[in-house]
Design a binder for these strands. Sequence first.
DNA 1: CCTATTTATGCTCAATTTGAGCATTACTGG
DNA 2: CCAGTAATGCTCAAATTGAGCATAAATAGG
Lengths: 332, 332
Amino acid sequence: MRAMAAPGLASARRHLRNEPMIENRPGSVSAELIAVLVAVTAGTPRVLTIAEGTSLPSGPLSPEHRSLQAGTRSWVERQTHHPLGYVEQLYTFADNDRNAALGGFGRAISISYLALTREQPKTLDGGASWRNWYDYFPWEDHRQGADLPAPLPAALRAWAQAGASPAERRARKQRAAIAFGLEGRRWNEELVLQRYELLYEAGLVSEAARDGIACHTTPAPRLGHAMRQDHRRILATGIARLRAKITYRPVVFELMPPSFTLLDLQRSVEALAGQLLHKQNFRRLVEQQALVEETGQMAGATGGRPAKLFRFRADILQERAYAGTKPPLPRA
Amino acid sequence: MRAMAAPGLASARRHLRNEPMIENRPGSVSAELIAVLVAVTAGTPRVLTIAEGTSLPSGPLSPEHRSLQAGTRSWVERQTHHPLGYVEQLYTFADNDRNAALGGFGRAISISYLALTREQPKTLDGGASWRNWYDYFPWEDHRQGADLPAPLPAALRAWAQAGASPAERRARKQRAAIAFGLEGRRWNEELVLQRYELLYEAGLVSEAARDGIACHTTPAPRLGHAMRQDHRRILATGIARLRAKITYRPVVFELMPPSFTLLDLQRSVEALAGQLLHKQNFRRLVEQQALVEETGQMAGATGGRPAKLFRFRADILQERAYAGTKPPLPRA
DNA sequence: CCTATTTATGCTCAATTTGAGCATTACTGG
DNA sequence: CCAGTAATGCTCAAATTGAGCATAAATAGG
């Protein structure tokens, strides 16, 4: 054991002494940047895709990029022709399966970013399109009733029953209950990734079939639109991160137009969270946090009493973006 | 603009069609894994270092690693000779400055991980050592009074005053106030990275001097121990993440021995948070969350009334680790 | 044995925060 | 004028949080 420890430390120290590594370039990989670019348009959360909605936009990391974030920013801006408001690193994946895809050039690393914008008309390059993210995750939208898509409850039961041992069956059952808010538990909108991964393991999404994972329901349900590689998993990661983020940091603002009504703002938050919020409490929260101020103008035809228009307060926003807000923005 | 957009999309699509990229291997980098390995021993939060405490352990990503996390796990375990409880990806950095350090092999990517363990006696390889993390961030420990290290308040004022324009001076002042809880604001223990970055920009840490950043205080204070490259920034990222995490996920448990008193547990949380907690409220929280159960035994000489020993409840723990806890664990 | 000291543990209380709902106001379209 | 639809103002009870008082059970020293 002791002897085995040496190589790791040794090469770490070589780094530190600025000596180049000779031994066949260990750690050499190719790197690509993948973006989960989100906008909310007309109350629908949308994500930028390419290849008929089957891929997230991605591009190789290039030497001229000053930094990873700058790289992401630069080529996403090239594609969408407008600046990104908010960019945040999501996760880094290394996929051994991609060796083949890269012509034997060693392993590939994908560094994914979450970015927020407003959708601009007619700026997309051919092939790119905005898609409702609930096309990929229909079970995540609880704005119209909390019912899961039809085949899900039975399919989850079948999966739990297919466990090899009683202990595994119990564990599966509990896991499904937590993830999907079954058995009297409440739905937790932040468990997007956990739900996707469970469905993958249970063979209920096409990617699982593609990767040779069995399903215990016939005919096998294939929930939501599939994506190539693990892009849907990355999208799930992005959605989960965004849902968590809006509860403690005022990032919704990046998704809103310069002025908006409080209901507009609420609808956007609801679109992201996939859940409806209590209107009066939402207002109370927003107002008490003093994140917005009246523009003095009123919104046109809302269908009822006209609403005041608001804008964000730049000063407060900066502070909150930096330090976060104490009281959460939404809450089921 | 349109024309420029093509390359990004084109190479993204090439990925998707499984075509190898020819053009001089764009995106080829070397990758290393860096670990922020944390333990809490005798009420002190400690981090594993190498090279006399000036570096975090790091090693190249190697082809035999199944995944990034497995890679981190494997060589950290080799060095410390015991299994890691919890491993979580922290952040991925690409540093152009490292080109030289790698002998012109192109850019280097560092993928950092946060890992939690208990310190085991005598298992370290030569050169590695556990260090109190407050050696690197003395301003982060508020357990004995909330006073900042002596030169800080004046140095922060000097930095704010050195802003080029009135607007910049105001912005700097506000930023310092938010980060360090000045001007009647409360200290936010999660802003570890923001504070380190501010001190770096203000020239108040050695790394800034190394990188040629000016300081507006003489003699220039050099707060805390320095580390090589950007390892101190990575450590700050890890501490910030851990401080945030313990408020909504029961990760402290990875740092505790099999049985412990409630005060032991509280001291560990306090060590991480850098702040003291109200004892009775801490108990109330832990008990109400039902995360622990009595072992039936009592702790020996505590100096006063003997305390009950507790252990974690495996069942609840699993669930919480998966879904998170609603009520936060500590709270200033 | 008695006392001061130290820590564990049980319990109370007021201030906030949260979740939910009622009531009123101000528009639009018949 | 009336019905329908939102916006907006307010109230209320439950739950959570922050702080402190009181008591119990040990140890060390006289």
